[in-house]
């Protein structure tokens, strides 16, 4: 049983780490600010989610797990708010995304 939990938590932590690294690569590779936002949202969701899930599996049903889950919830609530605020500020700061409005595209064709 313990072995099974260990293996499970290893898998989740490793997958989480993979998404975290992918986010890091993405933030470097993607061409402009708005696309980089997408790269950041990967480690912010599945990255922390899976790593914290793995840690919770290790900790078992304890206070540590409760705190981990609280941290996770806090980050899940504040993360998108911060991202949105950042994007909105950038948009009003006259930073033009390298993308077209879909509605515009359709009307032009």
């Amino acid at each position: 049983m313990q072995l099974l939990i260990d293996i499970l938590s290893w898998i989740t932590i490793l997958t989480g780490s993979f998404f975290v690294i992918t986010g890091g690569i993405g933030i470097l590779r993607l061409p402009d600010f708005f696309t980089r936002l997408h790269a950041v949202s990967m480690p912010d969701t599945l990255g922390i989610g899976l790593i914290i899930l793995g840690l919770v599996l290790q900790a078992g049903f304890t206070q540590t797990s409760a705190k981990l889950i609280m941290i996770f919830l806090f980050m899940i609530f504040t993360g998108p708010a911060a991202t949105h605020a950042l994007a909105k500020t950038a948009l009003h700061g006259k930073l033009k995304p390298k993308a077209m409005y879909k509605q515009d595209e359709e009307s032009s064709t």
Binding site: G23, I27, F33, R36, L37, V40, P43, D44, I48, M75, G79, A82, T83, L86
Partner: peptide, 8 residues
């Protein structure tokens, strides 16, 4: 964005 993501 980098600082925010760094914090995470």
């Amino acid at each position: 964005l980098a600082v925010n993501s760094f914090g995470t």
